[in-house]
Design a protein around this nucleic acid. Structure first.
Lengths: 179, 179
DNA sequence: TGGCATATACCGTCCAGACGGTACAGTACC
DNA sequence: GGTACTGTACCGTCTGGACGGTATATGCCA
């Protein structure tokens, strides 16, 4: 994860760390300010409300996720399932959406105000469309993508389906299905 | 979902409904009491603390999930991947863990106090062990089970990967992989 | 049979603390 | 002197939880 540059980014980064390390309940404006190294007034200058802050977190999540999708798409060889393969690569990226930090944005949004998830839902549909468009068997692609969602699910809950070694096997297994 | 009988169950049921319908943030002792048709004092008689209430919700989730696993296991024909097939059937059961109501227990626990997820983590490992034990290719089973987790993930977030028709196709596709 | 103690289930009130948000007075750089 | 940003002091509200009280049922003993 690249180091945050602007104060705004620093606050978002701090908020994500709080959720990851201490749980959503501990995400308060005061705490976010303290972790970002400024006062509550400072935070409220950048984000008018707490919902606003979470909107920022969600936006960061979506942007970083989408840009990773594109990066991996460019690197993947042409052919069927190219987008699906990019999704798998993204999901296993240590700085990707399955990192504790980014996933925390989802957690924060659902917990505080379910409406804040809307942008994710919208983007999700766009991703699905993209994947379906270049997948010969949409069911096959959907299965693998659902499994990636399961991966996020496990990350958020701290569930361990497999150790690091099996994770690599899993990734290879998935990519193998997308040829 | 069977109608709650004891007051205790009624409270847990009410709490789950609140999380599902209004979001975790609205889950307060007062609100749970009101929805269950008694006073806050009454709720606190059955659950000493709010964490206790959530522990009850998580326990209900685990029990109902495990009992569904067993039900479907009994109904599935013998052979390889029998437990994995039971997991798929359970995941698609309208009253199963992917129902909004049960999933809300997870949400509540992570949001309020991440430690409360521990019982789920413990049970999860037992389920994994069971599935691996009768799966010729553990990667195949793991892929499908991860996809089921993805299904819960989508339920919680309100994401729509597929419509009802495609869901049925998906289920058939998964079960077909487990033969 | 009646009197009394104990347990269970539940109610209503009160309170300390935390939280989101406002107001405003700075400060530092351009 | 204006713009971008920070710090502090404060307010109203909400929430978890403590607590004392109440009604009913059950058990015990004479």
């Amino acid at each position: 994860m690249s180091a945050p540059t602007t104060t705004r980014d620093k606050i978002i980064d701090a908020a994500m760390s709080i959720v990851r390390d201490q749980g959503v309940a501990k995400l308060t404006l005061d705490e976010a300010a303290k972790c970002a190294g400024l006062s509550k007034g400072g935070v409220l200058y950048h984000f008018k409300t707490k919902d606003d802050l979470i909107r920022g977190m969600v936006e960061t999540l979506i942007n970083r996720c989408d840009s990773l999708h594109h990066d991996y798409y460019d690197r993947e060889p042409e052919g069927p399932y190219r987008w699906a393969r990019a999704v798998v690569q993204t999901g296993f990226d240590p700085n990707g959406p399955a990192s504790d930090k980014l996933a925390s944005a989802l957690l924060a949004s659902i917990a505080v105000n379910p409406e804040l998830v809307a942008p994710v839902q919208a983007q999700y549909e766009r991703w699905i469309a993209r994947i379906n468009a270049d997948s010969p068997n949409p069911l096959q692609a959907a299965l693998v993508c659902m499994a990636m969602d399961g991966h996020y699910f496990q990350t958020i809950l701290g569930l361990k389906l497999c150790d690091d070694e099996k994770r690599e096997q899993m990734k290879a297994f998935m990519l193998d299905l997308l040829k």
